[in-house]
Amino acid sequence: MDALLKGLPLTYLAACDYRKTGKNWQAILPASSLVAAAQRLFKAGYFLEDIGALDCVEGYVVTYHFAPFETAGRVAIRAIAPHAKPVLPSIAHVFHGAEWHERETRDFHGVVFEGNPNLVPLLMDPDMADCFPLRKDEKARARMRDILEIGEVRFCAPGFDLMTPEAPAEAAAKPAGDAATA
């Protein structure tokens, strides 16, 4: 995976425990390198399992799960779409199946995928096109570092601390607070 994503502007890359969480790798990418990463994964024989957004404090964390066909393994590629302007590039021209997954994500979370050939409501009623059922209240949102697996960090862009666990003292001081916000 290191080699596969080499040279791409990465934000975060970590190896994960497949037995424990069902994925080997996770990477957080800036929106701009999403398509390039998808192309490399396509060449490496991966297929797109699903796209699902996660409404976090930091924004909509859109997770792309990729898996190979004939061996076990899973790669989670994540991109963060800010709440204010949730826009990501579409990978529907690389993985054609992504068209539907992206439309579904738009239906549920309102993340807009630029370049999707047919970004109209898929599962939701067209009359309810701007009602996003899986968006959460401000209060209910959790932080990425709390709910996502941190993994064994291989690379972390300087200045990116969203996935860094809080210092033990700080964490010990406010676990109760975390649960409450959750």
């Binding site: 424990k20 069902g22 799960h65 959790a142 697996e149 959750a182």
Partner: peptide
């Protein structure tokens, strides 16, 4: 935490992606 589990269904790969924030209900189930 989060977890992804997939089984081979009659129609193919059935996958469930769960994210929990430790609260009463699940945070996200894909």
């Amino acid at each position: 935490g989060e977890s992804y589990f997939a089984v081979e269904g009659a129609r193919g790969k059935i996958g469930v992606h769960l994210v929990s924030d430790g609260g009463k209900n699940l945070y996200r189930c894909k």
